[in-house]
Nucleic acid binder design. Structure first.
Lengths: 348, 348
DNA sequence: CCGTTCTGTGGTATCGCTACCAACCTATAG
DNA sequence: CTATAGGTTGGTAGCGATACCACAGAACGG
């Protein structure tokens, strides 16, 4: 004996499967390990009789196949890697949720990492995910470090970028255009008759999405024939208080401001609450527009005009593209623009 | 040649590491594979000279070690499994974020799954995670299916339950008491002088947390010497509209209601907005209290009295417990009550 | 100067599963 | 009754790493 119980410690021995291996199941079912493998991964490829024997043994031992061994052997994994700038943000949460659903329906698992908006961290996390041999990647970011681009260029797993429509995608992209969206909303405000439109942006550093939005704002002003006043643009970290603060500063330095477009929904809501507090009529004193259709914006008083970005669609379609590619679809570059929609509400 | 390129298809061939294996690195560095393994996993165990040779070869090839093979061989994985009722909910997001940070600082990855509040799904997901040989589990739920309890009993990986303080924990628990929290808030409202306190609960089915909260509400009423009127209790799915609707119904059926305690923050905010819309003074007409300290509640007008649950602490401490156990801490049952705090604000 | 400890390195044997090929058995046709 | 095809089953050889043991040379004491 000792034949099996060799020297190595069985540290993780009874990992749920009771430490049982496929060989044990095979022995007890009186079939070969290969038959067990087949019975579990493709039941239709074995005879009814074999299947029953295997199933019985599996149930008896509560056997759970070791996917680590399976992945190593088959050189295929069933884990998708996902890197988002922040897990805490509900925008990403909606996307993650959709990806998770599609993934699960296709037998895939999700390994989620958050980069905290730091490109170096994104690079390190993707490396780690590749070391885990994920079968696909979704990155909510399109402005990568040089080394990450090189790393991804050498990979042959499918990669999906989202969050923006980049000029030079790595592989597949599913997103909307931050530029177009911000331009459209600014234009919308102009057409509603607002003339002094402020703009509050999220941090611009290492964030092409923020920069694109600001570019869109300026482009729209130009199209509207309105002067671009840099004093009407403020950069603020995301947060209710920061949004409130930004609006107050804009109103105080530019009393003629008649509308303000916030490039982040939390900023907008913070500003709205501040208006309630100060008794500033919205949109009477100042109109407020937001970015991203948080559920919340539909319920505040007044309700807030915003851009609806189909976050869930982005997640779903990203996952579907991944699944298709894993199923053998040819690796052609795909670029899906899911678009956006202006939702006109009471605040403008 | 062909020596390496044997019959098997290299489907996942160049997974980021260029398909390079440790053997390749060893050959090119002129050392044994074992030295490469050691140089990478514990550089101090290898001489300066060897380390440099290995590092050079690793950089030259952009080699990424295959953790799947590593895990299989070492019977150790560096992936933690996490099951939450809903990824979309920001409460869980705060906890996930904290877990993610601690995990990352300790070289661990996160596999996240959402059960959608369904116990059968939780069971299936945990099975799948165990099959992936996760090195630890965090479950945001304490009311498991019988089969899941059996499954987990046979496992020897650390398991953390959270979301409630169960009577019979599986392994380790990090949570607060939903009963105590709801009781404390209801008592608080009573001590503020409110006499007709409504209660709006989230769905009770398959959710021990909701049930505990309701139990706490009734316990507090008893202690306050107030009658328990079942008509003052409403069950509502989470959502702004649902909260608004619940409050309106309570006010219409019980005009003497003077306070309402919502067991979910979104419900409370929805109700608050409805009050703004209808011009009902808060707390003049009806006081509003909430559960869970969403950032939002600190900024609404009026600000909302609520229970602060240290979600981030829960995540951090859960992860720390896991890490300690993985580092060899003895498997003793741990039960951490992180407590809660009543945050009295303008709405009551 | 030799034996002993210590440190660093290499070889071998798996980890638990799946791909591939070969062998078998039952059908069906000639 | 034999030949060919089709559908199942089993054996073997890895997947790419690590654990363990053995061993070579350096460092040390008597």
């Amino acid at each position: 004996m000792a034949g099996k119980a060799n020297g190595r410690k069985a540290r993780n021995g009874r990992n749920g499967g009771g430490g049982t291996t496929m060989n044990d199941i095979a022995r007890h079912a009186g079939v070969s390990p290969m038959t067990v493998s087949r019975a579990l991964s493709d039941p239709s490829s074995v005879s009814e009789k074999m299947r029953r024997k295997v199933d019985a043994a599996v149930r008896q031992f509560g056997y759970l196949p070791n996917r680590i061994a399976g992945s190593l052997s088959s050189k295929r994994s069933n884990v998708v890697g996902l890197v988002v700038p922040s897990i805490r943000n509900s925008l990403y949460a909606a996307m993650i949720h959709a990806i998770s659903d599609v993934a699960r329906a296709n037998g895939l698992h999700l390994m989620i990492a958050n980069s905290g908006h730091r490109l170096e961290d994104e690079e390190a996390l993707v490396s780690a995910l590749l070391a885990q041999r994920v079968c696909g990647l979704v990155l909510h970011n399109t402005a990568h470090s040089k080394r990450l681009r090189e790393l991804l260029a050498r990979t042959d797993i499918p990669v999906i970028e989202t969050g923006n429509l980049p000029a030079k995608p790595i592989d597949m992209v599913v997103s909307y255009s931050n530029f177009d969206a911000a331009r459209a909303m600014t234009g919308h405000l102009g057409r509603l008759g607002y003339r002094r439109i402020g703009f509050v942006t999220l941090p611009l550093r290492d964030n092409d999405r923020s920069r694109e939005r600001r570019r869109g704002y300026f482009a729209a002003l130009k199209e509207l024939g309105l002067p671009a006043d840099p004093g009407l643009v403020l950069e603020a970290p995301g947060g209710f208080a920061e949004g409130a603060d930004a609006l107050v500063r804009l109103v105080q330095t530019h009393p003629d401001i008649d509308a303000c477009f916030f490039a982040g929904d939390v900023l907008a809501v913070g500003a709205l609450f501040e208006c309630q507090r100060r008794g500033w009529a919205v949109p009477g004193r100042v109109a407020i527009a937001s970015f991203d259709d948080l559920d919340l914006l539909r319920h505040t008083v007044p309700t807030v005009t915003t851009l609806r970005i189909p976050r869930q669609d982005i997640g779903r379609r990203s996952a579907e593209l991944l699944v298709n590619r894993l199923r053998g679809a040819s690796p052609q570059k795909v670029r899906i623009d899911v678009g956006f929609e202006i939702v006109q509400r009471e605040s403008t």
